[in-house]
């Protein structure tokens, strides 16, 4: 592939990515008042999106492979329980990640 074509590809991806980020601001970001429904969604969506992102991260966990997704779910459980208990973000993330790395490297 020529370098010019590669450059154009990256630009297309950059522009399309920017479009997805601009949409809500172009629709509601002008002088117009933000509609009540949008305000409601903005307030209520974060927990729903966070749940979606967690599922997105775990999509690679193969329940039918050798590991049955055990490393993923064990590490999520460690992170969530530790966080519900201690409420320390860095501690929860470090413990969950080390648990996951240990499981995928040494056990499965």
């Amino acid at each position: 592939m020529t370098r010019e074509r590669a450059l154009i590809m990256i630009l297309v991806v950059a522009v399309c990515t920017l479009i997805t980020r601009l949409i809500p601001f172009v629709l509601f970001g002008g002088k117009r008042k933000v509609p009540k429904a949008v305000e409601y969604l903005g307030q209520i969506l974060p927990p729903a999106i966070m749940a979606t992102l967690v599922v997105y991260c775990l999509k690679g966990a193969d329940l039918f492979s050798a590991s049955h997704g055990i490393p993923e779910f064990a590490a999520v459980a460690v992170t969530a329980l530790l966080h519900a208990w201690k409420r320390n973000v860095l501690l929860s993330i470090a413990a969950g990640t080390l648990c996951y790395m240990f499981l995928v490297q040494a056990v499965f």
Partner: peptide, 23 residues
Amino acid sequence: FDMTGIDFAMTALFVTIFVDQWR
């Protein structure tokens, strides 16, 4: 070093935020 699995940090970040929001 073998860094396999370090990317789980991202998943863990989402999980902690989910727990906080839930609470």
